[in-house]
Design a protein around this nucleic acid. Sequence first.
DNA 1: AAGTGGTCTAGACCACTTG
DNA 2: AAGTGGTCTAGACCACTTG
Lengths: 214, 214
Amino acid sequence: MARYKVSRQTVQNAVDLLRREGLVTGRQGAGWFVREKPAVLRLASSRLRRSERDAGRGASLTDAAQGGWTLDSKATIRVEPACERTATELRIETGAEVLIRDRVITADGHPVQLAVSRLPRTLTEGTAIERENPGPGGIYARLEEAGHQLERFEERVTGRLATADEVSALRLDPGSPVLAITRTAYDTSGTPLEINDMVLAGERYELIYDLPAD
Amino acid sequence: MARYKVSRQTVQNAVDLLRREGLVTGRQGAGWFVREKPAVLRLASSRLRRSERDAGRGASLTDAAQGGWTLDSKATIRVEPACERTATELRIETGAEVLIRDRVITADGHPVQLAVSRLPRTLTEGTAIERENPGPGGIYARLEEAGHQLERFEERVTGRLATADEVSALRLDPGSPVLAITRTAYDTSGTPLEINDMVLAGERYELIYDLPAD
DNA sequence: AAGTGGTCTAGACCACTTG
DNA sequence: AAGTGGTCTAGACCACTTG
């Protein structure tokens, strides 16, 4: 204000621009700080390979191994009747039981990803998928053990601004961009087994996809 | 201001929040308007298949066919010496000639994507790749005709906020999220042939990737 | 206690559009 | 001309931190 002879509000607007560009963070009472360039986590597309599951690594842990991060997650498990969207996408009846695994994934202790996974209850009842820790290779390994051979995954990616809930869960600054990914897992008969809605801090992740030319 | 008995600035801040969430747009002198939910353009991963090129469709046109959009693009072609990053990624010498195709892609007349494509000049000299319109199947078809068989593509995706330049080029509201994709095309010997830096209006696109399970 | 950031009021002026 | 949005000044108060 003194240096440029402008009012408080003008400085606030200026510094708010820098905040929204992700360059600085303000802490009330403490000051404005240049933001540390957040290290990029890479989700190589190899993370969904069967060889990784066979080696006992779930999709998230494969990422961790790649980037040198210590990944961890807390899961809340619950059963709910399928809403219309879920029913359509899982091709089950509206109201049928759905197992929901609601996870917060942390990297070196910091929350970096939200993941809400939905499966028809008929596939999960009595399996380790209903436990917080589903064991080596994750839920995909358990599905295959139960005879549901996976064939392919589809990921749909969009970019948008974080909602208020995401801002608080991922400790983002308001107005931060996120990557929203919806992954569907299909078995060899083309039946969807799982839908996973993920939200990632946009600037902390780089997604890597490998695509064949023919 | 009258309804809630608050000051002008307070209303401005409130409405600015809605703007950043992508819900409304302000036009000076005209008013605030609820933003039309922008239709989603889908980039199916099939867009890089050889069958599409053989059918005469480039990657962008395949998108268009899928979503019912009329896609168009304006390209500026230029030759520059390779900067360090480009040289490393294309595995050529710093300063070697690079062909740059700088494109703005429009959907139904509205700019929706920026794409800057870089290829070693040695691959493009005397080919239609150096023309604004490279012909049916796009530059990938021309590369294969010249004997450079494509094997795979790698796409790296991040989410971030639009820069000031991107805001004006894509007619975005300030603070809008974008998807930044860097695609590298490799031939059968594993040599990179092209690097394409794309910037997409985050909320207008949904990227679709297909991943095999094994 | 003094110095930060965050947000607010009241009033002003300019650019743009015509509800 | 009157009504919009955008931005600014000057001053105020509260929450939080300790430069």
